[in-house]
Amino acid sequence: MTITVATARKHRKKNSLISALPWIGPAVALILLVVIWPAIELVKISFTKISLAGALGGFNGLQNFRDLFANPNLSVIALRTVIWVFLVVFLTVIISLPIAQLINQKFPGRKFVRWAMIVPWAASVVMTSIIWKWILDLSSGELNLTLTQLGIIHDDVDWLHDPRFSFYVLVFVAVFVSIPFTSFVLLAGLQSIPADLSEAASVDGATPWQIYRRIKFPLLRNSLAIATIINLINVFNSFPIIWAMTHGGPGYDTDTTTTFAYKMAFIEYNMGPSTALGAVNFFFILIIVGIYLRVTRAARIEA
């Protein structure tokens, strides 16, 4: 009896896989073509010799990786990448938590506020970056003009190029473009919390802060984890903000491993180590994705 049920189930499983193929086939093909194949090429190319002109040569062993790790700028850039990812994601989450709370409240014009929140997310990142680049421009920027007219500064500040500011200006813009998505993920989390929980707590005499701290925040944990990890991936990969605003400069002072890989390949014509860095970056992303999958699975099981 048990055996027949098991075989029947197996049969059904096999059949359902075949019958599902027409439906998932296009998606699988797409993933194979635009994700798996380039990833394989990326790894393959990182072990290939590449001439100055860009022509591919034969197998190069680990030489590209040796060249990469011999680069005197790599360690500083790698450290900066960690700081960059941590700062941006941390600030984004800290700012998005109260914003999610705010747009979860009922107030007149809420729809409008929610719309306005989405705009920086909906706009292309390159566009946003270029607008900020012009706002922060030394000689024709709106920010310097405003601050001068308000009497706050007397000499124009070179926000984007002054080594004291440029990195933090980039962090600010990265946070600015990450907030909408994060807020909306957290908003979705808040809306999934049953209202009667907080009602019950307030009947028992809990203050609003206690309700948030003890009831809502713990229940937000899953959406918080997902928002954090997706932001980790986005921010780590963030190329357009840095490239559009500072090109990673001066020197390598605002480069992350992502912009550095591009700079090596197409500014310095150091193709070999650049492909190696591409592979290393991809490996890090795989690790983060692995963590993401674990967390979402844990979340699903709990739910």
Binding site: L52, G249, P250, Y252, I267, N270
Partner: peptide, 20 residues
Amino acid sequence: LAAWPKVVGAITTQVGTGVN
């Protein structure tokens, strides 16, 4: 020189940092 494009890349990225 065949090496020139590569050298230009290094100069453009780095020479300016010499003033700091």
